[in-house]
Simulated scan of single mutants.
Amino acid sequence: MRQVILTVIVVVVGSFVQFWAHSADRVVADGVAAQVNNNFITISDVMLMVQPAQRQLAAKYSGVELKSQMQVVFSNALNSLIERKLILDAYEKQENKFPDAYLDSRVEEITQDMFSGDKADLMTALAKEKLNYEEWRKDMRDHVIASTMRKMHVEQNIAVSAKAVKKAYDENIDRYRANSKLRLRMIVLTMDASAPQKAQEIRQKIIAGADFSETAKEVSEGRNAKEGGDWGLIQPSKLRPELAETVLKLKPGEISQVVSIEDQCYIMKVEEKKDSYSDLHSQIESEIRKVEADKLHAVWIERLRKDAYVKVFDTGLF
């Protein structure tokens, strides 16, 4: 039997203790999550990436459901790390490399954004994560390379026409309007036997010419009463469904009928709507661009996979 050279690493991740080993002709055991060409992605690499999501899921789920949710998160994180390895390997194979000055300047920009240029804060953060500066800088440099490669192979190849934006707007106008923003004022009364009648009287007073804002300051029991019932710019989809349905039908300047919902009565005024084609053009273009980017990214990664050796191991964690 050929001698197997074992490298045993104890990886402690949460409650998991894993061992892995490799030799010239085989990979043994279960501490390796995947292999991309000559690079290994360990379970600890993946678990480090999913830690924030793991804490959130653990607070929300337990038992079988937590295990199921973690399986999805783990798989997504592993795929992201595999893609990054593929991209970095592709970069190493290409003849034209990015200038060191460009990569270093981008790393400095990231440092500035994350730590306001304060290296002492950076070093403190790295110490908490038990990382040294050179490891962090290499990781940031790899991040810059991967993002720049994506920009070259994906984002720069996307063109969204005005015709495509208009078509998307026309075909999905109800959805876009529900998620657009409008400026809303609201008078809120706590529900009791007299509230519906009182609300009707207040509405009639406003219809007759009373200022909505001043009336709200006088009679509203809502949290924004002091501001004249002003909710600012808000998406209808963020409101209770009954209220959203009502405000979507209102034109700017119109006053709603009294809407009674269980514990409260509402009178609403829409002052401004930002749901026209011109208002939503940039948002729709961004959505289309993202969809196209995801498609091109998938095609690009699949092409890189075909030219690489990729093996995903059964970790047995979930």
Rank of each mutant, 00 (worst) to 15 (best):
D104K: 14
S105D: 13
R106Y: 02
R106S: 03
R106A: 11
V107P: 01
V107N: 01
E109G: 08
E109W: 06
E109Q: 12
I110G: 02
I110P: 00
T111D: 12
T111V: 07
Q112A: 09
Q112R: 11
D113R: 09
M114W: 13
M114N: 14
M114T: 07
F115N: 04
F115R: 04
S116P: 02
S116A: 15
G117H: 01
K119F: 06
K119P: 01
A120P: 01
D121I: 08
D121M: 10
D121R: 13
D121P: 06
L122N: 03
L122S: 03
M123Y: 09
T124R: 15
A125H: 09
L126A: 07
A127C: 00
A127E: 09
K128C: 04
K128I: 14
E129H: 05
K130L: 02
L131N: 02
L131T: 06
L131R: 13
N132T: 06
E134L: 11
E135L: 05
W136S: 00
W136H: 10
W136Y: 05
K138L: 08
K138H: 09
M140T: 12
M140V: 02
M140Q: 12
M140P: 03
R141W: 14
D142C: 03
H143I: 04
V144R: 00
V144S: 04
I145W: 01
I145G: 04
I145Y: 03
S147D: 12
T148K: 07
M149K: 01
M149W: 01
R150T: 06
R150S: 06
R150L: 13
K151N: 15
M152T: 02
M152I: 02
M152E: 11
H153C: 12
E155N: 12
Q156F: 02
Q156T: 07
Q156I: 00
N157I: 05
N157L: 14
I158T: 06
A159T: 15
V160P: 10
V160L: 08
S161D: 12
A162Q: 00
K163F: 14
V165C: 04
V165N: 04
K166T: 10
Y169T: 02
D170T: 10
E171R: 11
E171A: 15
N172K: 01
N172Q: 14
N172G: 07
I173L: 04
D174H: 06
R175N: 15
Y176L: 03
R177E: 15
S180F: 10
